[in-house]
Nucleic acid binder design. Structure first.
Lengths: 66, 66
DNA sequence: TCTATATGTAAAGTTTGTTTTACTTTTGAT
DNA sequence: ATCAAAAGTAAAACAAACTTTACATATAGA
């Protein structure tokens, strides 16, 4: 699974730490997500989508290997 | 977080085992999700949404405590 | 009522998400 | 070139997802 969190952050001019604070996780969690180190929980993706005012599907994308 | 997976299954007339097979998890995983025993990964919620031809937000709902 | 199918549940074990601490590297502004 | 903020990374520890096995309960049809 891939995501475009970094792009959304850029649109809203937020740092990884900003985003982490707003959705209640650590900065490393955001960093790891952006670097595709792991798959976040659905609660996290819903919170991120809500924050950026777009759908989960507009941020997270399934890949063939998923 | 809550979900309406059971309703979607009913619409498509699928058993928990059917759904589990289609998205590649165990039947107990589906059962536990429906009973709100745990929060699925974003990969799972994307697969379920795709299967039911609706958005993640139409199946999974954040609650105040999330 | 008997039987098959579907659902609920539980415990043990494995894998993966997430935090914390801490350090390095990059980037941008002055 | 320097400095501060931002991003990248890593290891240890903990929490939560997910599997497997196994059994109990419910439901519907013959």
């Amino acid at each position: 699974m891939k995501n475009n969190i970094k792009v959304q952050r850029a649109i809203y001019n937020m740092t990884q730490a900003d985003l982490a604070d707003k959705i209640g996780v650590s900065r490393q969690t955001i960093n790891a997500m952006e670097k595709n180190k792991y798959v976040p929980s659905t609660v996290l993706s819903l919170k991120i989508a809500r924050l950026f005012k777009i759908s989960v599907e507009e941020i997270f994308f399934l890949e063939d290997e998923d």
